[in-house]
Design a protein around this nucleic acid. Structure first.
Length: 795
RNA sequence: GCCGAAGUGGCGGAAUUGGCAGACGCAAGGGACUUAAAAUCCCUCGAGAGCAAUCUCGUAUCGGUUCGAGUCCGAUCUUCGGCACCA
């Protein structure tokens, strides 16, 4: 018997698969049912893969291999989310070129992904930084622009003067820049944004009927944040000005005692009285110097300033002082609110601090002398709402407002505009030209892609993209008019919004992908990735998909039919694997030492794929022993052409259980079931060839190399095992004809009787009499018998 | 504060619908083989009591429903993840 030389076996099959294009997909073959298995593509960092990444990859690979054997035409692609800030920062630091650096990283990732035996169709590999790819990213951007979903607007951003750039919220800590610790302030700047709130309801509705984790659906729902309420119009006393507020508690309008505006509200300078002017302006300035993070710190006391102006409560004409307060967000609702201190905790705290009235309009046991009451109850002090509960009062108020034309019922969403530009080099250029006459033009489709120019200096300057310095690239002429290219680039989430569509038809240069192919292959049947992308990438990708669907380019509104998460990989010290702690395990080392099959099995055996896992080098040996055992048995005299039936039952049970586990991605239990089977084979005298072949197939999706090798060398099969029909099982042969039935007395386990399957209660009591006579002699009051499960006698 | 997930041996984890808790693997202990070691194979392995057959306790804590609860219900504690003044 030859030794189990995993290295030689891996080399042999890697070149076999490559040479025979074993995993190439003929996407035009519609004769078989399709299956599209997909992992979120990696960001090709300089650090390479760590052992956390392959959890999701092996899971989708095993699903792809399983479905191929089940007769599906499987699409299983891979690519790289290659644009992004870390690469650019590396380039600035080292003087390297981001493109070269990215290419190098991609080569390393590809090597590692091939090393672990993924059955990827490598001819479909894509990279978001490839102009052939981002041509179509730009093209979709233009379609969004033409449809009015892209805006170039002034908005408030985090601005760091020292770094000369805009920062994302998570790059700002305690009002200072994460890098350098420089002060960061709010600043109004022109920004590209995508109007994702227009899709809020569609994205919410689209969640229905998806096979996704319930918690993920809830996370997306909360993120979109639908709330039903009313917009109410307020007039300002002694002024022509009006403003609107959004409220979910229109029923409490009679309890409103002041109004509060966000410090950025446009009406403020028009209504502020002379005496309050300096105070108001000082406050606005103070707020502008704060970051979102400071402003939204709920632990700080609320602050605000009186404008001197009064609003008129449309319900009872009472005068309400108008404050500006930083607890009012300019980005939510109308950037203004009617305050009802008696029934809102935030308004209550503010009213107490500034000694404003608190009017109770809902009856409660505890009253409102100590804190706000936010529950349901009978309305009081509310004119035509008196006596009604919250829901009735709300409904009545909606009707009244609409009748009086003072407001209307509405739906508001928390989802905000998606800022779609960065002042950086390493991203897709925004395909827009600013013309001399002040107009903006899209780059004509025939001139796409707008390719990133080669540069030497990638440092952003004065909040402008480094592309400003590429003067030859920037200055263009269209139809005789001069213009300048937009120098902001797209965020790194752009390329990942539609990559799953491009995989289907990656070399198409006429359109982003052929419609017939898209209709056949979408949606993705299985999508696996981390939970951290639920409110970012996944939501954005769903929006782009939905947009393309609305415009008729796609026939499926939702891209990901079934979605599962891979859990975090922790180091054995209980900390997250990270360079910082020096506890990162490199798959290269594990594969070199134990082989790719052992690595794959260990990754899957650690626990359910969505669970947090704790890497433990010691545990790997169990999987190594498992494969060694298989190798030995397949080369032993046990293996024979034989019609021996002794393993028939457990074989059928194993096929049944493993098949079900693969369907559920429950790979940890699939592996333990296969271990139990091999333990039985080890005990048995013979291992009939039919079962031996079937077992190799069961194991193949998780351990492709050893199974291909044994299939080839032990059974002399010339073709790969990859497409051999999945083994079947006989339900009748799975069933035990005799079972051990637990016997309880008063609910406590007292023993077990042997009994035939599906025995009647009489037979069960008979068996009890024969096998456990002591128990049957008890004075039986009642018998609970669940066939094949339990016999419980009450005495 | 709000939302979500989870809590089972020394460890990772099983238990498909409420029906023998701890499958499978690791670690540990004992034995066989060996001059010896490694590898391999066999046995033991939740806690307590008992010479023993056996008995009692046991799935974060407390209570409930049920013939029967790791599983269902109510309260509490802890850990992790996400959001954070959303009117």
């Amino acid at each position: 018997m030859a030794n189990y030389d995993f290295k030689a076996i891996e080399n042999k099959w890697n070149s076999y698969w490559e040479k025979h294009k074993t995993f190439a997909t003929d996407v035009w073959d519609f004769s078989k049912p399709k299956y599209y298995s997909l992992s979120m593509f990696p960001y090709p960092s300089g650090a390479g893969l760590h052992v956390g990444h392959p959890v999701g990859y092996v899971a989708t690979d095993a699903a792809a291999r399983f479905k191929r054997m089940c007769g599906f035409n499987v699409l299983y692609p891979m690519g790289y989310d290659a644009f992004g800030l870390p690469t650019e920062q590396y380039a600035i630091k080292t003087g390297n070129n981001p493109l070269d650096f990215t290419q190098m990283n991609i080569d390393n990732f590809r090597r590692q992904l091939k090393m672990i035996g993924l059955s990827v169709d490598w001819d479909r590999e894509i990279s978001t930084c490839d102009p052939h790819y981002y041509k179509w990213t730009q093209w979709i951007f233009e379609k969004l622009y033409e449809a009015g979903y892209v805006k170039n607007q002034d908005m408030s951003v985090n601005w760091c003067e020292e770094l000369g750039t805009v920062l994302a919220n998570d790059e700002v800590i305690d009002g200072k820049s994460e890098r350098g610790g420089y002060p960061v302030v709010k600043k109004f700047m022109k920004q590209w944004v995508i109007d994702i709130p227009s899709f809020a309801q569609k994205l919410l509705d689209g969640l229905d009927g998806l096979d996704w984790p319930e918690s993920t659906i809830i996370t997306e729902q909360n993120w979109i944040g639908r709330s039903e309420g009313a917009i109410i119009k307020f007039e300002v006393k002694d002024s022509k000005e009006t403003f609107e507020v959004f409220t979910t508690r229109a029923d409490t309008l009679f309890g409103a005692t002041y109004c509060a505006l966000a410090p950025e509200h446009p009406i403020i300078n028009k209504i502020t009285t002379k005496t309050q002017k300096s105070e108001v302006e000082a406050y606005q300035k103070l707020c502008a110097s704060k970051t979102d993070i400071e402003r939204t710190d709920t632990s700080k006391e609320k602050t605000g300033v009186f404008t001197g102006a009064y609003a008129i409560n449309p319900a009872n004409k009472k005068l309400l002082p108008i404050y500006i307060a930083d607890y009012v967000l300019s980005t939510y609702g109308k950037g203004a609110l009617m305050a009802v201190p008696a029934h809102d905790e935030r308004d209550y705290a503010f009213a107490k601090k500034y000694k404003l009235d608190i009017i109770e309009v809902i009856k409660s046991k505890q009253g409102v002398s100590k804190q706000a009451y936010t529950g349901d109850g009978e309305h009081i002090n509310s004119d035509f709402l008196n006596g009604l509960n919250n829901e009735q009062a709300q409904k009545t108020m909606f009707e009244w407002l609409e009748k009086q034309k003072l407001g209307e019922k509405t739906v508001n969403y928390r989802l905000r505009d998606w800022i779609f530009a960065r002042q950086h080099y390493w991203g897709e250029p925004v395909p827009v030209i600013h013309m001399e006459d002040g107009s903006m033009k899209l780059v004509p489709e025939k001139d796409l892609p707008v390719v990133l120019p080669a540069m030497k200096d990638y440092q952003p300057k004065n909040g402008k993209s480094p592309l400003e310095n590429a003067t030859e690239w920037v200055n263009v002429e269209i139809d005789g008019m001069k213009g300048k290219r937009e120098t902001n680039t797209m965020p790194s989430s752009a390329g990942s919004c539609w990559y799953f569509l491009r995989y289907i038809d990656p070399h198409n240069d006429k359109c982003f992908a052929d419609k017939k192919l898209l209709d056949h292959w979408m949606p993705v049947d299985l999508y696996v990735g981390g939970t951290e992308h639920n409110t970012g990438h996944v939501l954005y990708a769903r929006m782009w998909n939905r947009f393309l669907y609305d415009k008729g380019y796609l026939s499926h509104p939702e891209p990901f039919k079934r979605f599962r998460h891979n859990g975090l990989m922790m180091a054995s010290d209980g900390r997250k694997m990270s360079k910082r702690w020096g506890n990162v395990v490199n798959p290269d080392d594990v594969v070199a030492q134990h082989g790719a099959d052992v690595f794959r099995l260990y990754e899957m055996f650690m626990g359910p794929i969505n669970a947090t896992r704790y890497w433990n080098d010691k545990d790997i040996v169990g999987l190594e022993r498992f494969l060694e055992k298989i190798w030995t048995i397949y080369h032993s005299e046990k293996l024979q052409k034989s019609d021996d039936k002794s393993l028939e039952k457990i074989y059928n049970q194993t096929v049944k259980k493993v098949t079900a586990d693969y369907e559920e991605l429950s790979y940890n239990t699939a592996i333990s079931t296969m271990m139990i089977f091999m333990n039985s084979v080890q005990e048995a005298k013979v291992f009939p060839e039919g079962f031996a072949r079937g077992f190799l197939q069961l194991l193949n999706p998780l351990a492709p190399y050893i199974t291909e090798e044994l299939w080839n060398t032990v059974f002399n099969e010339k073709e790969s095992i990859a497409y051999v029909s999945w083994p079947t099982f006989d339900e009748e042969k799975c069933a035990e004809n005799e079972i051990k039935l637990p016997v309880q007395v008063n609910g406590k386990l007292k023993g077990v009787v042997n009994i035939k399957l599906d025995a009647t209660q009489i037979e069960a009591l008979d068996a009890l009499k024969n096998q456990l006579p002591v128990l049957s002699e008890l004075e039986i009051k009642k018998v609970i018998y669940v066939p094949n499960k339990i016999l419980n006698i009450i005495v």
